[in-house]
């Protein structure tokens, strides 16, 4: 059976009553045997292969993998910007052909519209939904402070720092008010300090707000600190190498990164990532530290 799961996680063949309570509900988002080939110079470039992935309501799930393994492609498929070559995407248990526009998606780049002020960038989603502008604006203004944007409402994006631009993009995604939010390496371009601050800030926000989040990252610590579950992908063509439940208590604090169980999980993910190029299995040796074994079990 591929992948081998680690820690408390139950796998795809989970039967009700066995695992955590949350597994009883139908997954909010479900990828079933997803494959994706791009055509490059008339050749098929396999990017994803047999990806099974599910996310439950209110869950925070991270996808981690080497650069170019197809992480953004997975989010594009979930968001409905792209269709898989093989397999099925289900939302609330049903195949969903019309999910484009129903799922929040914050891209790797901030993609702010340079001709709009911070405020008008933030309300873009509400505007496209046809909500009255003045109402949307006052809703956005209420949130400016907690997004660290107070006083910058009337600025154009050009002169904002990278961190602020990301927060405007994030506010835009949040205001569009979708139940599921996809985040593609939201902190990737930030320096370490800003990044740590942003992670804590996102934690607080998410814990107070309980949306379903799928986060793509290449930062192991970030994945463990923020997530309920982590999927580790192999190098291209990406498949799920490991699925890990992070059973750290909430609310999470940044200090947890030095705790023993945290370090163990981090080591496990790093081991799986290191081995991302081979077809070896990740095995749980019983003490919580997964090791890599040769060949198939």
């Amino acid at each position: 059976m591929w992948p081998v799961t680690v820690g408390m996680t139950s796998n795809a063949e989970h039967t009700p009553g066995e695992g955590p309570r949350i597994e009883l509900a139908k997954p909010k988002i479900e990828l079933d045997g997803i494959g994706k080939d791009f055509v490059v110079d008339r050749n098929a470039l396999p990017v994803l292969r047999d990806v099974d992935l599910s996310v439950h309501e209110g869950e925070f799930v991270s996808i981690i993998g080497p650069s170019g393994c197809g992480k953004s492609t997975i989010l594009n498929i979930i968001a409905g910007l792209d269709e898989p070559t093989r397999g099925e995407v289900r939302t609330d248990g049903r195949p969903s052909a019309r999910r484009l526009g129903a799922i929040g998606y914050m891209h790797q780049k901030d993609l702010l519209l340079p001709w709009r002020t911070v405020l008008d960038n933030a309300i873009l989603g509400l505007e496209l939904q046809g909500k009255p502008k003045s109402q949307s604006r006052s809703r956005a203004l209420e949130l400016m402070d907690s997004f660290g944007l107070k006083g910058f409402e009337k600025n154009y994006p050009a002169l904002l720092s990278g961190g602020m631009r990301q927060r405007v993009a994030f506010l835009r995604t949040v205001l569009a008010d979708h139940q599921v939010i996809l985040l593609d390496e939201p902190f990737g371009a930030l320096d370490a300090m800003t990044r740590a601050n942003m992670q804590e800030w996102l934690l607080q926000l998410w814990e107070s707000w309980g949306k379903t989040v799928i986060l793509v990252t290449h930062d192991v610590e970030e994945a463990v600190l923020l997530s309920d579950r982590v999927y580790v992908l192999t190098a291209r063509p990406g498949r799920v190498k490991m699925e890990l439940s992070v059973d750290l208590p909430r609310p999470r604090r940044y200090e947890m990164v030095t705790e023993e169980s945290f370090v163990k999980m981090k080591a496990g993910i790093i081991a799986a990532l290191r081995d991302g190029n081979t077809r070896n299995w990740v095995v749980d040796d019983g003490n919580g530290i997964p090791t890599v074994a040769e060949g198939q079990p």
Partner: peptide, 24 residues
């Protein structure tokens, strides 16, 4: 094109893509 895709995920229609991104 990434901006247009971002707009699509926010529910933009063809005409909105045109007036709110292409025209500016």
């Amino acid at each position: 094109p990434d901006m247009l895709n971002m707009m699509r995920t926010l529910g933009a229609r063809r005409w909105q893509l045109f007036t709110k991104v292409q025209v500016p």
